[in-house]
């Protein structure tokens, strides 16, 4: 059996928070990510959904190597991406790249498009001028920009075009995995469709694997193969997108989906009908926490486990 493309195994990220007291008095630990495990297969789009503070961004930063895990392992094709024996930043850069949320902050205002695309190539040992400009031209065409636009600066582009440049920069080193951090939530509604279509086209054309971080469930449903729902630094439910959206088992997942204001539901002059199919839980088991209560991020979470309730569909239940 071959190793999965990306494997995250029991990832923990904890931050020490100084309490402001002298000599470390009042020091506490913030439990941002508590034992996340998942695999990403070649060519799939896996989405991590959850609300602010659930640990989804911290998980992404750990995979990108921008945040050291406190515990656990991240493997790329069976090789560790974190901890001792991890590859340098250069190898990691060719494996995982990221598309950022805010297209206005994610481009250096003092670098032309060409410079910000050429610099990583040069850094990774591609020095021939003709090859650099060829690859930039191909990449710009891939994201729907013209070669003439390469000499321009970020402020000369619209939000949608900037996001295209951000995608081009993420793909220029030809990574296999691309982390999409809320890739369309900062864009105008009419531009979102274009970027979503572009991302799906590129995924198919280049065989990319996406790990998408998002709170926008309609985008998640449209793009994902599998979905992880996070709450308080833990996965509370995971499964194929069909399962998550038609028969969500965890009350938090249901709440999240029901909270999306749907313009078409409003046409029926009323609330959306409860359209989830019920899921049978194993006898005697219950969910971990009351839905609607804010998690205490300064306490280690109560013991619990992910239970498979259907094929590839798992939900977190309290440990009996």
């Amino acid at each position: 059996m071959t190793a999965p493309l990306l494997q995250v195994d029991n990832l923990h990220v904890h931050f020490p928070i100084s309490g402001g007291g002298l000599l470390g008095a009042g020091r506490r630990t913030l439990y941002a990510v508590n034992g996340i495990s998942f695999e990403l297969a070649k060519g799939e789009c896996l989405s991590i959904v959850g609300e602010s503070g659930c640990g989804k961004s911290t998980t992404a930063l750990s995979i990108l190597g921008l945040q050291a895990p406190s515990e656990g392992a991240i493997r790329y094709r069976g090789l560790p991406l974190s901890g001792p024996g991890a590859p340098g930043r250069m190898q990691r850069a060719r494996a995982v790249q990221m598309v950022f949320q805010d297209p206005y902050a994610s481009l250096n205002p003092r670098q032309s498009v060409k410079t910000s695309l050429a610099a990583p190539l040069r850094l990774h040992g591609i020095t021939a001028k003709s090859e650099i400009s060829d690859r930039i031209e191909v990449m710009l065409a891939n994201v729907g920009l013209t070669p003439e636009q390469a000499s321009r600066y970020p402020h000369e582009f619209s939000g949608g075009q900037r996001q295209r440049i951000g995608i081009a920069r993420a793909l220029i080193l030809e990574p296999e995995i691309v982390v999409l951090d809320e890739p369309v939530s900062a864009l105008d509604v009419s531009i979102r469709a274009q970027i979503i279509n572009l991302l799906l086209d590129l995924q198919e054309k280049l065989g990319l694997s996406y790990l998408m971080i998002s709170h926008d469930l309609s985008v998640v449903e449209h793009m994902s193969n599998r979905v992880l729902v996070m709450f308080a630094g833990q996965v509370v439910e995971e499964g194929p997108w069909q399962q998550i959206f038609t028969s969500p088992a965890h009350p938090y997942t249901r709440r999240l989906i029901a909270a999306i204001p749907d313009p078409y539901a409003a046409m029926n002059r009323g609330e959306r009908p409860e359209r989830f199919t019920d899921v049978a839980l194993p006898a005697g088991r219950d969910f971990l926490f009351e839905v609607g209560t804010a998690p205490d991020v300064f306490a280690a979470p109560a013991p619990s486990e992910l239970i498979e309730i259907a094929v590839d569909h798992r939900v977190r239940l309290a440990l009996t």
Binding site: V189, S190, A193, S218, W241, D262
Partner: peptide, 14 residues
């Protein structure tokens, strides 16, 4: 029409 068509719609994929 363009705005409405550009929205990914919850439930439409299923």
């Amino acid at each position: 029409r363009g705005l409405l068509g550009a929205l990914p719609r919850l439930g439409s994929r299923s």
